[in-house]
């Protein structure tokens, strides 16, 4: 028994245990499998959901709920399939449900002045003095801009964009996660990118007038 254990430890040091293996361990009652997966994915899921709902606290609550569901519904995971798309599917459903619910109770925004936050970009370049600070500032501003623009495009375009650009999933995986055909993934990404560009262009022209 001890021998078995140490050889397992040895393997782990040389080769990380796959998500699927960890999930199978958890299904067999080993909670450490779940803890390891939580550790592996909590930040990624938080960022994905945050980009979908644009609210940090809400994103934390939803991410927490995603992992509660993984724990509770572990039995629904099919061993041998890929864990990440399954996890992202739960996360997508959580985020999309929340957005759908939010729409139902949506406020009519009276003071529509989102450009205010664009102008108050806080730039912190302390840790990055090895690279050209000018470039860092520009990159940060551009990323802030794109982050604001992302909030303004419809969710159905935002979800595949984030899964593609931030999470690096291919079309087949995105199709599985969002449960839409691959062709739809392709057209939504194309349309999403075009929309994002339009929003960015508009924001820039508004800012140019404002300054």
């Amino acid at each position: 028994m001890t021998e078995n254990y140490s050889s397992e430890q040895e393997t782990e040091r040389t080769m990380p245990i796959s998500d699927d293996d960890l999930m199978c361990r958890f299904q067999k009652g080993d909670e450490s499998g779940f803890r390891r997966l939580l550790e592996r994915y909590q930040d990624r899921i938080l960022n994905y959901i945050y980009r979908m709902v644009s609210d940090r606290h809400l994103a934390e609550d939803l991410t927490q709920e995603v992992f509660v569901r993984v724990y509770v519904h572990a039995g629904r995971y099919h061993p041998g399939s890929s864990f990440a798309p399954w996890l992202y599917r739960i996360a997508s459903n959580m985020a999309i449900n929340e957005l759908r619910r939010r729409k139902r109770w949506r406020f009519v925004t009276i003071n529509n002045n989102p450009s205010e936050s664009d102008r108050n970009v806080v730039v912190d370049i302390k840790d990055e003095d090895s690279v050209d600070p000018e470039q860092v500032v520009q990159q940060k501003e551009a990323s802030e801009e794109v982050s604001e623009a992302l909030k303004k495009i419809p969710d159905k375009y935002r979800a595949p964009l984030i899964l593609r650009e931030l999470e690096g999933y291919d079309y087949e995986e995105i199709s599985q996660i969002l449960d839409i055909p691959r062709g739809t993934v392709k057209s939504r990404l194309n349309r999403g990118r075009a929309l994002l560009e339009t929003v960015l262009k508009r924001a820039r022209s508004v800012n140019a007038v404002a300054f």
Binding site: D43, E60, E65, F67, Y71, A142, V146, L166, L200
Partner: peptide, 25 residues
């Protein structure tokens, strides 16, 4: 645009996150 999305400042989960998940469970 893709580059700018990838450079968006990432968030990290709070220190008590695992605790919160298990409380939820």
């Amino acid at each position: 645009i893709g580059r700018n999305i990838r450079y968006m400042a990432p968030l990290t989960t709070p220190a008590d996150f695992e605790f919160r998940v298990f409380a939820g469970i």
